[in-house]
Computed example of a mutant assay.
Amino acid sequence: MSDVQETIIPLYEEAVSVTRRKVDQGRFRIDVRVVERDQAIEQTLDRQDVEVERIAVGRVVKTAPEIRQHGDVMIIPIVEEEVVLVTRLVLREEIHIRRKTTQRTELFTVTLRSERAEITRTGVDDVVSEISGDQHD
């Protein structure tokens, strides 16, 4: 027989197994509220008025004058026939129409709405942040 002894040495091997699992690290609650604010608006408005002035002329003309413009005045001739031994046109009057523009400033108040969202995170640390659609604060 032989003097050699046999020794058995076990060998080990490690293996990695990867799995996924969901961990609740907190939740969010979002509250949306509408904020109203009044804002004054100043607006300039135009208004046109007309003045009508009748001016007696009494001048004999051969033909009816046409409507004409003199600066900001529109002149509309009014004629009538007059019987003398001959028929002739007599310019009796003119109507002068003048445009006058006036301006006034009015103050309006309008209500503007914007939404604000308040986000609350619950979990290990409670965190509150506010998101606003209103960028005019």
Rank of each mutant, 00 (worst) to 15 (best):
residue 109 T to N: 06
residue 46 D to G: 08
residue 37 R to H: 11
residue 48 Q to W: 12
residue 102 T to G: 11
residue 97 I to M: 05
residue 43 Q to A: 15
residue 63 T to C: 00
residue 67 I to D: 06
residue 98 R to Q: 12
residue 45 L to M: 07
residue 59 R to N: 06
residue 78 I to P: 00
residue 98 R to A: 13
residue 100 K to F: 13
residue 108 F to R: 08
residue 32 V to F: 02
residue 22 K to H: 15
residue 79 V to S: 00
residue 48 Q to A: 12
residue 50 V to F: 15
residue 41 I to P: 02
residue 107 L to S: 14
residue 58 G to E: 05
residue 53 E to D: 15
residue 76 I to C: 07
residue 31 D to L: 10
residue 57 V to D: 07
residue 33 R to N: 01
residue 84 V to E: 02
residue 96 H to C: 02
residue 125 D to T: 14
residue 79 V to P: 00
residue 70 H to P: 10
residue 96 H to S: 02
residue 82 E to M: 01
residue 84 V to R: 07
residue 109 T to G: 05
residue 46 D to K: 11
residue 29 R to G: 14
residue 24 D to F: 07
residue 78 I to N: 02
residue 92 R to F: 00
residue 84 V to P: 01
residue 37 R to C: 09
residue 84 V to D: 04
residue 55 I to P: 08
residue 80 E to N: 00
residue 60 V to Y: 07
residue 125 D to F: 01
residue 82 E to F: 00
residue 109 T to C: 05
residue 22 K to C: 15
residue 102 T to R: 15
residue 66 E to A: 14
residue 71 G to E: 10
residue 113 R to K: 12
residue 41 I to C: 00
residue 47 R to T: 14
residue 111 T to F: 05
residue 113 R to I: 08
residue 110 V to S: 07
residue 30 I to D: 12
residue 86 V to M: 10
residue 80 E to I: 04
residue 107 L to N: 13
residue 66 E to R: 15
residue 105 T to Y: 12
residue 92 R to V: 08
residue 38 D to F: 05
residue 81 E to S: 10
residue 104 R to T: 04
residue 87 T to H: 01
residue 94 E to A: 05
residue 82 E to D: 01
residue 104 R to Q: 10
residue 107 L to A: 13
residue 85 L to N: 09
residue 90 V to S: 03
residue 115 E to K: 03
residue 108 F to D: 11
residue 123 G to Q: 13
residue 124 V to F: 01
residue 111 T to M: 04
residue 96 H to W: 11
residue 120 T to P: 00
residue 68 R to V: 06
residue 52 V to F: 03
residue 71 G to D: 11
residue 40 A to C: 11
residue 67 I to P: 04
residue 91 L to S: 08
residue 84 V to I: 04
residue 64 A to S: 06
residue 62 K to F: 05
residue 81 E to D: 06
residue 102 T to V: 15
residue 39 Q to V: 10
residue 108 F to M: 12
residue 46 D to R: 10
residue 95 I to F: 07
residue 122 T to E: 06
residue 116 R to P: 00
residue 108 F to S: 13
residue 114 S to L: 09
residue 88 R to L: 07
residue 60 V to C: 02
residue 37 R to V: 01
residue 80 E to R: 11
residue 90 V to C: 04
residue 106 E to L: 13
residue 31 D to V: 09
residue 59 R to G: 06
residue 102 T to Y: 15
residue 105 T to I: 13
residue 82 E to W: 03
residue 88 R to E: 14
residue 40 A to H: 07
residue 94 E to M: 00
residue 46 D to I: 05
residue 103 Q to K: 12
residue 32 V to Y: 03
residue 41 I to A: 02
residue 105 T to A: 11
residue 124 V to P: 08
residue 106 E to A: 12
residue 72 D to P: 01
residue 28 F to Y: 09
residue 65 P to S: 07
residue 26 G to I: 00
residue 93 E to P: 04
residue 98 R to E: 09
residue 76 I to Q: 08
residue 112 L to N: 09
residue 22 K to D: 15
residue 85 L to R: 09
residue 105 T to L: 09
residue 49 D to A: 14
residue 112 L to R: 12
residue 80 E to Q: 03
residue 78 I to L: 03
residue 119 I to Y: 01
residue 74 M to S: 07
residue 110 V to E: 09
residue 38 D to K: 13
residue 99 R to A: 15
residue 114 S to T: 09
residue 54 R to T: 11
residue 122 T to P: 03
residue 63 T to W: 10
